[in-house]
């Protein structure tokens, strides 16, 4: 485990890169496979000689594209909602990019996630449809559409007809049936307007809280390395008073456990003393020792990772909904299951 913690530290620049070339290559393949090569490049660019700069250039050009796309989508979103009182809150990657946080530097972004009040949902959907977004093919069937609307924390994903970009419109941070109940109204009330824009982001403490909720209370932690690095950078972006806020705020909105876990991970994986101190006084989720083992095993993709993945998968469903919903849902999904369709790519082939 020591060596693997080292990999995370090397990616964010806390430890020097391996001197041995094969190890260095492996590290970069690891970073690429976990979608953090761009973040590694942003942290380390210019610090080394040789080929590595070419590889970093490639990664940075790619993330520059993502960020450009995101800014454009934000502009289209504002335009779609113009003339209304609705001020959506940007979530996750979109928020980090809009606020130019450390967590945004070199980060890959594909979708745009926004949060609006539940009573605004219908109007937002209508306006986005008018602006060219449509129900995404993947979930454009009666069951999925109804399922999302009845139980989920977001509308079924919408894809723009021309640009192909996806927007997820949330009204909660977790499914309606989730075990954690988050004080979403408080978070929305605390959101701050982005200068010269109709869009908002959460206050700094809430940005961290949402990231922790997303990672540890929703889903099976599908992108663990990226998740850990995100928490690390978001934590670095909090100033002294934000960090004090964080503890109080996490308790207020009912997210103390996932936040406690995220802060613990920052402390443990990146040897961050501030995070270590803070994590001591915070509540942790049930079976903390088992959970932290599973998270780290999954991230490191070693021999035990299939077991870790299975545990996290079961946990994600346990957190998401009660049995009386889960069993029919999984049965339905199993019947509906088809092999993942590979996205067609236009390529020049010999």
């Amino acid at each position: 485990m020591i060596m693997q913690r080292k990999a995370l530290k090397q990616i964010v620049g806390l430890k020097p890169l391996p001197e041995k070339v094969l190890k260095r290559i492996k590290l970069m393949i690891f970073a690429d496979a976990h979608h953090v090569l761009g973040q590694m490049a942003a942290a380390l660019t210019g610090a080394h000689e040789g080929k590595i700069n070419d590889v970093f250039d490639n990664a940075l050009l790619r993330t520059a594209h993502d960020h450009r796309m995101l800014h454009f989508e934000m502009n289209r979103l504002e335009r779609a909602l113009e003339g209304t009182e609705i001020t959506p809150i940007l979530l996750k990657g979109a928020a980090y990019v809009a606020r130019d946080l450390k967590a945004a530097q070199g980060r890959r972004v594909s979708d745009i996630d926004i949060l609006v009040r539940e009573e605004e949902l219908d109007q937002v959907e209508k306006l986005l449809m008018q602006a060219g977004w449509k129900a995404d093919q993947e979930t454009d069937n009666e069951y999925d559409q109804e399922y999302y609307r009845q139980w989920m924390h977001e509308l079924p994903p919408m894809r723009h007809g021309k640009r192909g970009t996806i927007i997820d419109v949330h009204h909660l941070l977790l499914p309606r049936t989730a075990r954690y109940k988050i004080g979403i109204d408080q978070m929305i009330d605390g959101a701050r307007t982005i200068e010269a824009s109709a869009l908002k982001t959460f206050c700094p403490a809430d940005v961290f809280i949402h990231s922790a909720i997303h990672a540890f209370a929703d889903g099976a932690f599908d992108n663990p390395v990226r998740g850990f690095i995100e928490h690390y950078y978001l934590f670095q972006d909090l100033n002294e008073s934000d960090r004090k806020d964080l503890c109080v705020r996490a308790e207020q909105v009912g997210a103390e456990k996932p936040v406690g876990l995220a802060v613990w991970c920052v402390g443990f994986l990146f040897s961050d003393e501030n995070a270590q101190k803070m994590a001591k006084n915070m509540k942790k989720p049930m079976l903390f020792w088992l959970l932290r083992w599973a998270l780290i095993s999954k991230a490191m993709d070693g021999l035990t990772s299939p077991l870790a993945k299975a545990l996290l998968y079961i946990r994600s469903h346990y957190l998401r909904m009660p049995m009386r919903l889960l069993v029919p849902h999984l049965t339905r999904k199993a019947i509906q299951w088809r092999p993942m369709s590979r996205k067609p790519v236009d390529l020049p082939l010999p």
Partner: peptide, 10 residues
């Protein structure tokens, strides 16, 4: 036979 540096492509 043994790489002397990182590579564009693997």
């Amino acid at each position: 036979l043994f790489p002397s540096d990182v590579t564009d492509v693997h």
